[in-house]
Amino acid sequence: MSKRFAETIEELAKGIGAGSFRSEAEISQGVIKRVLHELGWPVFNVRVVAPEFKIGARKVDYALCHPAGKPSVLVEVKDLGKADSRGQKQLFEYCFHQGVPIAVLTDGREWSFFLPSGQGSYQERRFARLDLIDDDSVAAVEILERYLAFDRVKSDEGRRCAERDYDAVRRQREAASNYASVWRRLLAGPDPLLLELFSEEVGNETGVRPEPESAAKFIRRQAQAAVASQDGSKRTRTKRRKVTPVPAKVGPGDPPSLTFRGETETFKSGAEVLVAVFDKLASLDPDFCKRYPEQHSGKKRRYVARSRDLLYPGRPQPAASHRLPGGWWLATHCDNPSKVKRIMRACEVAGFKFGRDVIIHIPVGSRTRKTDQSTTG
Rank of each mutant, 00 (worst) to 15 (best):
R160P: 08
P101L: 00
T236V: 14
P293V: 09
L132Q: 02
A13W: 00
A18G: 06
F44M: 13
R240P: 08
Y179D: 13
P190C: 09
N178Y: 05
V31H: 01
P71E: 00
R315Q: 10
R164F: 13
R235N: 13
P71M: 03
P71I: 02
F44E: 14
Q29N: 12
N178S: 10
R125F: 07
A149Q: 07
L12C: 04
L310A: 15
S307W: 11
V75K: 00
L330I: 10
V277T: 03
K290I: 10
E211P: 08
G40L: 12
E7I: 07
G108D: 01
V273W: 02
V141G: 04
S137L: 07
V182L: 12
S321V: 03
C334P: 05
E145D: 10
D335L: 15
G99C: 06
H296W: 06
V35S: 02
V202Y: 01
F352T: 07
P67F: 07
V250H: 01
A228C: 09
C161K: 10
A6C: 13
G327K: 01
L197P: 01
G207H: 04
W329V: 03
A103W: 00
G377M: 14
C95N: 00
S181T: 12
F92T: 01
G108Y: 01
V49K: 02
R146T: 15
R184Y: 10
R209G: 11
F354P: 00
G262A: 05
P337A: 13
F113N: 02
A188P: 08
K54L: 15
K341W: 15
V35D: 01
E10Y: 03
S338V: 12
K242L: 14
D165W: 04
R240Q: 12
A63Y: 00
E93C: 05
K54N: 14
T106A: 06
A6M: 11
A18H: 05
D156F: 12
G326D: 08
W111Q: 04
E124C: 11
A25S: 11
V48T: 02
K3L: 15
G17R: 03
E24N: 07
T371D: 09
A168F: 10
I359V: 14
R323Y: 03
K234Q: 11
Q373H: 14
W329G: 03
S112R: 10
T259P: 10
S269V: 10
P192E: 07
A180P: 07
L105G: 01
A228W: 05
R291Y: 04
V208C: 09
R34V: 15
A25W: 08
T266Y: 03
N204K: 15
L74T: 00
K239Q: 09
G365W: 09
W111S: 04
V364R: 01
K299I: 12
S257A: 15
S283A: 15
S321M: 03
L144R: 01
D285L: 09
V35N: 02
N204R: 12
V48H: 02
S112V: 11
A228R: 15
W329K: 02
A13K: 00
E24S: 04
Q29I: 13
I16L: 05
L130C: 13
